[in-house]
Design a protein around this nucleic acid. Structure first.
Length: 508
RNA sequence: GCCGCGUUCGUCUAAGGGUUAGGACACCACCCUUUCACGGUGGUGAUACGGGUUCGAAUCCCGUACGCGGUACCA
């Protein structure tokens, strides 16, 4: 019996979730579901200074909107809680102390000023970014450099301290990554990372290892930005729980903006959303737009994100979540970063709007329409409208541009477009057409069309020449779906009224 | 600076030693449509560079260049 697959997404609740994060969630989710495993959400809120109210709620809402609901989380519960690191605070210290006993970590009493001084002292052109590592640690104030008696004294005097890992000086560390294969590091390049902060909270490095162990995570996936600190995590695993217990790793490629790693600033700068849902930063009073608010469907967002850095090896591009679960494999995730292309994103949304039924779309379209102050009275008519116009809608707000004329009569007419060819004969045609329409036994686009064409033949006018005026009478301009379909949806009474009204206007 | 990762049309990607280097987005043209779209057909357009290995390299190896990431008591 194989071990149950358990994966986790571990965001820090510091603001909106951007699409890189959503994609990480997605790949985690797909992997878990593919292997009948569990998808866990863990909140990494160990940095109290960066706490942002509402950010955690936002994450749940985003996940729920996307349809990527965790099996375990602070909100959904589970057997491995608490799932919020701040609530696990007391549990980390013992592991840090264990490392100290084993000589794999040490207390460090350096103040921020001490660290600053060290950096200034060591900094050269060749070493522009000095680290707290083997080369300087014996010159600093820590339990390695100080005599034991002094360390005891400092501790009993409650001097603030951190616990740092003692990185070995000369060791090769190999990471096996499911996407990249073997990645090699030298231990001497990493610094003595802080494991436990002065406030007693763990840093990411300690917490991720301890929690992945305690929560029985089998596969640890995260963004490529974590690759450089992987050796620290591997060492921690080796020291604390043994490498045999370590999950399998995979580092996903980054999603790039027009210039480097996609950031929320790119959104404002280039005019596309970067967050899944809009995020309001109350401290700065600025809102970052989300895909949801821009009128994207969650199905499309998921689909486009899945294909940004992965594909199933075929030419298939439109996938439902189910299909993604079915065909997903980590090995086919790319190594290289992918630049986000908003045009392609819109194409995916368009495809999804076309793919979904009027029924699927109705609720969202209704929201768009009512957002314009128009109440949708006739459900059946709405379905008809959606079917009629969805092929020409790329994002949800387009439904208004494409169908507003069904809800209100034209307030102006594009008479310019027909002026040149308008005349008495055509006017007469429409006057007769009104009578014909009144006599139509069954209202429907095919009947309207044949009445229209028959009458045109009688009047000896090409039907094509009459269609544009008819369209403008009904909607006001050169837009909309096929004109007989418009008349159909409008209904007999409304159609006749609009022709009548327009005829008067055309004369002026 | 140092370390790591990466590099196929403008963008997302297929091809894991033998293909006229395929598809999609975008763009252009034509067809359909007397609105605009949808749709259809076709077109422009890529293996970063230099060395190897091989009968044969986009594919394997080495260098160079470029890009990205990391280098916090942030995650």
């Amino acid at each position: 019996m194989q071990q149950e697959v358990r994966v986790r997404f571990a965001p820090s609740p510091t603001g909106g979730l951007h699409i890189g994060g959503v994609r990480t969630v997605l790949y985690n989710y797909l992997f878990a579901k593919k292997h009948n495993g569990k998808f866990i959400l863990r909140i990494e809120d160990t940095d109290q200074s960066r706490y942002v109210a509402g950010a955690e709620e936002y994450i749940y809402e985003t996940l729920s909107w996307c349809g990527l609901v965790p099996d375990e989380s602070p909100k959904h519960g589970g057997n491995y809680g608490p799932y919020r690191q701040s609530e696990r605070k007391e549990l980390y210290r013992k592991y840090a102390e264990q490392l100290i006993s084993a000589g794999q970590a040490y207390y460090a009493f350096d103040t921020p000023e001490d660290l600053e001084k060290m950096k200034l002292r060591v900094k050269t052109d060749e070493n522009t970014n000095p680290q707290y590592d083997h080369s300087v640690r014996m010159e600093m104030k820590n339990s390695l450099s100080l005599p034991a008696s002094e360390v005891d004294q400092l501790l009993s005097a409650s001097t603030p301290y951190v616990i740092r890992i003692k990185m070995p000086e000369n060791e090769n560390i190999t990471l096996h990554d499911m996407i990249r294969g073997e990645v090699h590091f030298h231990s001497h390049i990493a610094d003595d990372k802080v494991l436990l902060k002065a406030d007693g909270m763990p840093t990411y490095h300690l917490a991720v290892v301890v929690d992945d162990y305690l929560m029985k995570i089998t596969h640890a996936f995260r963004g490529e930005e974590w690759l450089p600190s992987a050796p620290v995590h591997i060492l921690l695993w080796r020291y604390l729980f043994g490498e045999d217990a370590m999950p399998e790793w995979a580092h996903f490629p980054l999603i790039l903006g027009p210039s480097g790693k996609l950031s929320k600033r790119d959104g404002a700068k280039y005019g596309f959303p970067v967050f899944a849902m809009s995020w309001n930063d109350k401290s700065k009073g600025e809102t970052t737009e989300g895909f949801r608010e821009r009128g994207f469907l969650p199905e499309a967002l998921i689909n486009l994100l899945a294909l940004l850095g992965w594909n199933d090896g075929t030419e298939k591009e439109i996938f439902t979540l189910e299909e993604l679960i079915d065909s997903f494999s980590i090995e086919k995730v790319h190594k290289g970063g992918a630049k986000f292309d908003f045009d392609k994103a819109k194409w995916f949304n368009h495809e999804w709007i076309k793919k979904l039924s009027a029924d699927d779309l109705a609720k969202k379209v209704k929201t768009v329409i009512s957002g314009k102050g128009v109440a949708v009275k006739d459900e059946k008519q709405l379905y008809k409208i959606i079917s009629l116009v969805k092929d020409r809608c790329t994002v949800l707000p387009d439904f208004w541009e494409q169908s507003f004329f069904f809800f209100r009569e034209p307030d102006q007419y594009d008479t310019e477009s027909i002026k040149a060819k308008w005349g008495e004969d055509k006017k007469r045609f429409f006057e007769n057409f009104i009578k014909e329409l009144g006599a139509i036994p069954e209202w429907g686009s095919a009947f309207i069309e044949s009445a229209f064409k028959n009458l045109a033949a009688v009047c000896n006018i090409k039907p094509g020449e009459l269609q544009l005026p008819f369209r403008i009478m009904l909607v006001g301009g050169k837009f909309g779906p096929p004109v007989f379909d418009i008349a159909d949806v409008l209904g007999k009474k409304e159609t006749i009224e609009r022709i009548t009204k327009a005829l008067l206007k055309f004369d002026q």
